[in-house]
Write a protein that binds this DNA or RNA. Structure first.
Length: 212
DNA sequence: CTACCTGTAAACAACC
DNA sequence: AGGTTGTTTACAGGTA
């Protein structure tokens, strides 16, 4: 897959729209095309722009674009999950998005078809889809397996890729065992999603828990 | 062509 | 001892 942060690299992009983030997130799946073609889809949110100069942290692992909307899945992800979930209601006659007509993917019909989402997107969706906005690694595995049966029969290397992404991408923050135990009622470290702004770690999903 | 992102593999350490 | 998790490095391929 190609670069995913072209907008942030452009000197004229002092702010980044949500749609740009989404288009980057789902570039490979054709969502960017959908966003461009489907005028009925409006994912733009007001006042979600980064201050000029906040993109200083342009590391290879910078995935700030994933978090320009704090409720990414709420605003659009539910339809995304519904479109890819094997547990999708069979009676759901919602017309497929243009993205699907362009690059169809149905986890139920094509369980052996590799999803066109990057591992970063898969991890992000898994964590965002959890009630506590954080998940232990094994639950991230399970979420991916549940929603993308392809990985059930895929070589085990995909788990390595998941762990690789969790370690490499700074926006995935590991919560230590004690805290995850207290707050998540689980006995293992969990990951939540962070993005950095001016060297500050800010949780977009659990603002009351900045003290990790 | 270059820079960058992504996927994959592998090695290694720590832990259970 | 073996499996899992976490980190790091390296490389190939694709895209702007």
């Amino acid at each position: 897959m190609g670069p995913v942060m072209p907008a942030s690299k452009k000197p004229e992009s002092s702010g980044i729209s949500v749609s740009s983030g989404l288009s980057q997130c789902y570039r490979g799946s054709g969502f960017s095309k959908a966003l461009q073609e489907d005028d009925d889809l409006d994912f733009s949110l007001p006042d979600i722009r980064l201050e000029e100069g906040t993109m200083e942290d342009e590391e290879l692992t910078n995935l700030n674009w994933l978090h320009e909307s704090k409720n990414l899945l709420k605003s659009f992800g539910e339809s995304v999950l519904r479109s890819v979930s094997p547990v999708q209601d069979l009676d759901d006659d919602t017309p497929p998005s243009p993205a699907h007509s362009d690059m169809p993917y149905d986890a139920r019909q094509n369980p052996n078809c590799k999803p066109h989402y990057s591992f970063s997107c898969l991890i992000f969706m898994a964590i965002e889809d959890s009630p506590t906005k954080r998940l232990p690694v094994k639950y991230i595995y399970n979420w991916i397996l549940e929603h993308f049966p392809y990985f059930a029969n895929a070589p085990t290397g995909w788990k390595n890729s998941v762990r690789h992404n969790l370690s490499l991408n700074k926006c995935f923050k590991k919560v230590d065992k004690e805290r995850s135990q207290v707050r998540l009622l689980c006995l293992e470290p969990a990951y939540c999603i962070f993005f950095s702004t001016k060297n500050e770690l800010i949780s977009t999903t659990c603002p009351a828990q900045h003290d990790f």
